[in-house]
């Protein structure tokens, strides 16, 4: 495989695409949003349970390419336990990573496993795929909290 292509489709990404983590609907979610990429028809639903400003649980469902699915899967993995503010900050950092704003040798400590998406910056057409879940998470957190019926 071409090395640029291998950088985009790292094993971790292929793996999360095949067996996405937290792929389900959270019935008790108090924040949720639907994301849609009209260009490719990708759809994603993000569900969050936020208590005292902390993401207690997060999940997703939807259809999309390997990049968007793996990105959603890894995002849910990374955000569990983070505060809302930390989640938003990580989104900014992640966005900078995939759009090449972090330069050639970024410090990837904060990004942890998300570093596997560094290859996306060579594929401008795929930035939207990698960021769809994050944009949707962002819009979910900025919506009004859903009143969960306890009946």
């Amino acid at each position: 495989m071409d090395s640029e292509l291998r950088d985009l489709y790292q094993q971790v990404i292929l793996d999360h695409n095949k067996s996405p983590r937290n792929y389900k609907k959270l019935e008790n979610a108090n924040f949720e949003a639907e994301g849609y990429n009209p260009l490719c028809g990708d759809r994603i639903d993000i569900f969050l349970v936020v208590e005292n400003d902390i993401v207690k649980d997060i999940s997703f469902q939807g259809s999309g390419c390997a990049i968007s699915k793996a990105s959603a899967s890894l995002m849910t993995h990374m955000l569990k336990g983070k505060t809302k503010k930390e989640a938003e900050e990580l989104f900014v950092k992640f966005h900078d990573l995939i759009t090449g704003k972090l330069g050639d040798n970024p410090s990837l400590d904060e990004l942890g496993k998300l570093a596997v998406f560094a290859g996306v910056k060579e594929f401008p057409a795929r930035v939207k795929c990698a960021s769809l879940a994050w944009h949707t998470m962002h819009s979910a957190l900025n919506k009004e909290e859903k009143i969960i019926s306890t009946e």
């Binding site: 292509l5 489709y9 490719c40 028809g41 390997a66 990049i67 699915k69 795929r126």
Partner: peptide, 22 residues
């Protein structure tokens, strides 16, 4: 189980131009 976008990107690296999407 393989999304058209992934197909399109892989084929591009074989020199093949196809359209993927709606």
């Amino acid at each position: 189980n393989i999304h058209p976008h992934d197909v399109g990107t892989f084929l591009d690296f074989e020199g093949i131009a196809i359209r993927t999407g709606h």
